[in-house]
Design a protein around this nucleic acid. Structure first.
Length: 436
RNA sequence: GCGGUCAUAGCUCAGUUGGUUAGAGCACAAGAUUGUGAAUCUUGGGGUCGCGGGUUCGAGUCCCGUUGGCCGCCCCA
């Protein structure tokens, strides 16, 4: 047993594991680029205060934080949002709008391990700054959908629940609740799915007994699962903000429909995301079977850039993690088998043959071809087996017979045909094979 | 931070009421085999049985602690 092991919650990426992670990150990157998002990055280590300013002092318990040698309180980044707000805020006036940015990076949280959650993970973060209307949500939800469809997942495999904190505010205000009572009620709504009526305990403890009529109305609202039901609910309510908001909803749902994404999206007012900094539409992606933790989450946070010291700048974004996405792909058999196959495997006789082979091997490699060969002298039979096992398309055979004739034997490993070419034409023959 | 459960070779596991030098399959390596592909046979390397303590003539096995994994709670940006 090895003396040292990786820290709890951290993963080692052996080549097979790394190939899976790379597969996920590569497709995310390609997808984000297809949507016109620009990639950025920033330090993994940030001032602790950045996260406290966004989430409150309590977050420190969930952070990898420490004091550096200069006496600075620092933390490994647990999320990208504060960092990207810092970046955008610092240059907001110089950046072309809309600002569509994404990042793929590693994040760290000091938490207890569970299925789908460790202390280090990779996320795609995508954000749009400077666009106050639902056009930004259309773009981001479409990107989120495609970030999963790119792997072959379909509406059978996952869906997105769409909700709106603004509507909750308007609704609860229309019912006569003030600001702090609204926030407390939203916490209860967030927990209702999990705890049922017990979710209201916190509200009751803070504000006294819950009026039966009010509770019934809240329960009715959080069970709304369609835009039609939403409109009907508001038909009888008086509010000056509602018509504009319902128009936003129409624009958002209309845009998603035009992109053919309606089958992925379900209106669900039961989602509010407990995070206080969300200010409008919020959305979460889940697997259809409901067996995994959330795949992705996001929403609008129009106040955060300013709160973190930048100018007032509307923003909406989401993040999707590699762990749950990977679990879902494994579940559905959509994780490919990755083989690190060379293009060419060389079968080599004795020392003289080896010297001849080396010249071609290096030249082919310099031209970008993947070439491998046995490092030690090995029986021919084993070399052919190794060539087949390697997954290479071609075997180049440098034996004493070929050397004497001044040729190289080229074996096509897929159909087992062989032919001989003069030594000085071997590289060209390989090039022609792969360009054909 | 709390609770449950587990820990034997690189992997999957066996190991009897506590009893000789802890086993198998797979994987890896060498050979049979210096000229042709998933085969066969032989052989080999690999373990202080997670770690520490206790009970015992004797512990992989029983007890306590600890570390780590898995599952759940809290939390989940």
């Amino acid at each position: 047993m090895a003396t040292f092991q990786s820290l709890p919650g951290f993963r080692d990426f052996y080549p097979d594991d790394f190939a899976r992670r790379k597969h996920i990150c590569d497709l995310w990157r390609r997808t984000a680029h297809a949507f016109g998002f620009a990639e950025y990055d920033a330090p993994v280590l940030e001032p602790l205060e950045l996260y406290k300013a966004k989430s409150g002092d309590e977050v420190e318990g969930q952070l990898f934080s420490f004091t550096d040698k200069g006496g600075r309180e620092v933390a490994l980044r647990p999320e990208m949002t504060p960092t990207v707000c810092r970046l955008v805020g610092a240059k907001a006036n110089a950046l072309k709008r809309p600002i569509k940015w994404f990042n793929i990076g590693e994040f760290y949280r000091y938490e207890r391990m569970q299925k789908g959650r460790g202390r280090s993970f990779f996320q795609l973060n995508a954000d749009i700054f400077g666009e106050p209307g639902p056009e930004a949500e259309i773009e981001l939800i479409a990107l989120l959908v495609q970030s999963l469809c790119a792997f072959g997942l379909t509406e059978q495999d996952f869906y997105i629940r769409l909700s709106d904190r603004n509507l909750w505010f308007y609704y609860l205000e229309a019912l006569g609740l003030d600001g702090s009572r609204v926030r407390e009620m939203l916490v209860a709504v967030d927990k209702h799915e999990k705890y049922g009526d017990d979710a209201f305990k916190g509200y009751v403890e803070q504000f006294g007994p819950l009026d039966a009529g009010l509770k019934a109305k809240v329960l009715g609202f959080l069970q709304i699962k369609s835009f039609a039901a939403l409109e009907q609910m508001f038909a009888s309510l008086q509010s000056d903000k509602l018509p504009a908001r319902l128009a936003d909803w129409k624009k958002l749902l209309g845009g998603l429909d035009a992109m053919g994404l309606t089958r992925f999206v379900e209106v669900d007012l039961g989602v509010v995301r407990g995070l206080a900094y969300y200010t409008g539409f919020v959305f979460e992606a889940f697997d259809r079977k409901g067996e995994l933790r959330a795949l992705a989450g996001g929403g609008r946070y129009d106040d955060l850039v300013e709160k973190l010291g930048g100018p007032a700048l509307p923003a909406v974004g989401f993040a999707i993690g590699d762990v749950t996405t990977g679990l879902l792909l494994e579940q559905r058999g959509l994780m490919p088998n990755f083989i690190q196959a060379p293009d060419v495997y060389c079968v080599i006789g004795g020392d003289a043959a080896r010297r001849a082979a080396f010249a071609d091997i290096h030249a082919l490699r310099a031209a970008g071809r993947r070439v491998d060969y046995p490092m030690k002298e090995v029986a021919f039979g084993k070399q052919f087996k190794a060539a087949a096992d390697s997954g290479a398309k071609l075997a180049l055979i440098y034996g004493d017979d070929e050397l004497a004739k001044g040729v190289v034997k080229i074996r096509d490993l897929s159909d087992r045909t062989e032919r001989e070419v003069p030594r000085d034409q071997a590289q060209a023959a390989v090039r022609d094979y792969f360009s054909a």
